[in-house]
Nucleic acid binder design. Sequence first.
DNA 1: TAAAATTGTATTGTACACAATATAGTTAGG
DNA 2: CCTAACTATATTGTGTACAATACAATTTTA
Lengths: 142, 142
Amino acid sequence: MLKLEQQLCFPIYALSRQITALYRPLLEKLDLTYPQYLVMLLLWETNKISIKEIGEKLLLDTGTLTPLLKRLEQKKYLTRKRSEEDERIVLIELTSGGLKLKYAAAGIPGALFCALDITEGEMMGLQQKLTGILNTINKNHG
Amino acid sequence: MLKLEQQLCFPIYALSRQITALYRPLLEKLDLTYPQYLVMLLLWETNKISIKEIGEKLLLDTGTLTPLLKRLEQKKYLTRKRSEEDERIVLIELTSGGLKLKYAAAGIPGALFCALDITEGEMMGLQQKLTGILNTINKNHG
DNA sequence: TAAAATTGTATTGTACACAATATAGTTAGG
DNA sequence: CCTAACTATATTGTGTACAATACAATTTTA
């Protein structure tokens, strides 16, 4: 059982890094890294969201998000402001510059789909299985 | 298409980190991180291997491996020695201390399999699909 | 209401991950 | 031989990841 070839976890780990590498040249044009792109995906959907909610959706903690969000703030893609109702909460809001990126990013999902060279059915099946495992883990260990 | 829910890549990325988190408490007892564990898996199979070969098998570059291997050397799990035939090559060799770990690690694959809560068939199918995608990427972009 | 517990962020320290660059050793071509 | 190209590793710098800790604001409780 202690053989690399027999592990399920290694392909997941390696594929995650290889896919990030596929995104890299595409995201470079938007001056984004892959985790930064995930944050922008959320903002393009919600416009305004707290750091806590971002962490819950992306399964990332504050030690990762705080500096990442500060870098996105420096690029003028979002703003950081304390909530007036509860000053513990930092609200992240999309800027017009951040919104512009959405249109520049329109081709990225298609480009990635091509690079993976799988059918739409395979993709949906895989996504469902992986999300299922993800939910199992978060139920039992989250 | 620019919605987090519709992405295949996000579950792969998130699952990779969540699985690493499942390994963490198990590997802590062996004083290993997950990438260090992958190197040890290789050494338990081959006993002696060059840094270049490790990089090829794990798809990691020298900027990651050099400091990682130095940490494993400090823990006395392996030795680093220049090849006598070609002094550019650094050969990594398992020590007796590193071999002992193999027996301490025997229960880890089983524990992970349980935590994922999937059937053996599902696991094999998933592994095959992911490895297929991994090969596609490395063929076209490696 | 004052003290205690909780909550949301921030900070620090360690360890990947990888691009870019540097360097020493090896091989090839003239 | 001697230099140019190549190869294997190392170094540097930026950006995640996350555990552990700190802290200020809020809520709960006695």
